[in-house]
Design a binder for these strands. Structure first.
Lengths: 200, 200
DNA sequence: TCAGTTCTGGACTGCCTGGTACAGTCGTCG
DNA sequence: CGACGACTGTACCAGGCAGTCCAGAACTGA
């Protein structure tokens, strides 16, 4: 029974709410953010929220989807054209640098996913889909490396992409918990070493 | 101003509260668990809680510490005597099997760490210390492999341990988000492959 | 036994939360 | 321009939350 916006004003209101929610959720965590805070940040009232969403859970789902779309868009830009190991290394280094500059928060998708996975199936699926896309972007880059002969023909882009993503994700978890960028760098270097082992 | 228990009864009460809290936090998440629920599970009243803890944050810290101690104890038992690659493979397979059987929750330490890292410095440190110990257990096992000549002399146990732990942790994050054990297996296999590359 | 301390039960408070109700404004289209 | 539906501001509600309080029970040591 949640209404789709039918006017420009409505669409703008809904969007402001979702964006404010996504920003606050990313900054403070989903559970630590109240609807009132979201509404205050968006300059909207309760009635707008409940006009567009069935309740809190549906807003969380929308906000997680929004944030995932943003992150995926950035990743697509960074990884979309990568076709060499050097290019991939550069992209990952850039990602790690950006992450460090934020003061070692969790992974922009992973943290949301972990917090939401057990409480909100819809939001969990959004995060899972974002991981799928991320992984596929890496796999495509590896496929291009294989086609160009840089990567051996018997290497599996999909498997290597999963492993690399896991290293990255795990590195971020360790770095966040320790407040130390070193684990991420080590994990990333190890993931790349794994890749190098499959070069032609 | 939090009182140390001075009698057997008091110690038992405090322990019951911490254990109940740790169990509920692990099951439902820290933010999604109220003090009343913890107290009900422990069969205790508010006055006990505030007799032993300054407030919610201090209980969270104690519970996270308790849970970390439990997990570390289990890991010590599993990894403490490992001295061969085969042994390490077996230990990791056992860990993954146990994890899968739980229905793909988050990492028993990592999830807690991620949820708590930005809100409770004391609890974050507990989790970070647990990761340190975990990593050191793996590093020690690798050192034994190096001493026995199974691992090459130029391999760095500490670095390899960090990378392996990151793979494991990242694999759990991906598996939890996707509700699919495959990513964890792939990540673990990749971590081990990395190790095999350093065999003598 | 008795005085002092530790521990316990549970009622109580004030605040904040997600969610509802409703009257009023704005936009759109005939 | 007029009417209808989309949209909005705000007051309100019940329930749940962390945290307080105090009277009394249990334990300790002398």
């Amino acid at each position: 029974m949640p209404a789709e916006p039918r006017t420009g004003r409505g669409r703008a209101s809904r969007e402001r709410i979702v964006e404010s929610a996504a920003a606050l959720f990313a900054e403070r965590g989903v559970a630590a953010t109240s609807l009132d805070e979201v509404l205050a940040a968006a300059g909207a009232g309760k009635s707008q929220l409940y006009h567009y969403f069935r309740g809190r859970d549906e807003l969380v789902e929308a906000a997680v989807g929004h944030r995932c779309a943003l992150v995926v868009a950035g990743l697509t830009q960074t990884l979309g054209e990568v076709a060499t190991l050097a290019g991939l290394e550069q992209a990952l280094a850039g990602f790690a640098a950006g992450y460090e500059q934020m003061g070692l928060p969790g992974c922009p998708i992973g943290s949301l996913a972990a917090e939401v996975a057990e409480h909100n199936e819809g939001a969990r699926k959004q995060a899972a889909a974002a991981f799928d896309t991320w992984e596929r972007l890496v796999a495509r880059a590896l496929e291009r490396m294989r086609e160009s002969g840089e990567l051996r023909a018997d290497a599996s882009p999909a498997t290597l992409a999963t492993a690399l993503l896991a290293s990255l994700e795990g590195g971020m978890v360790l770095s966040q918990a320790r407040k130390d960028p070193a684990p991420l760098h080590i994990a990333l270097e190890a993931g790349l070493a794994q890749l190098r082992a499959h070069l032609a």
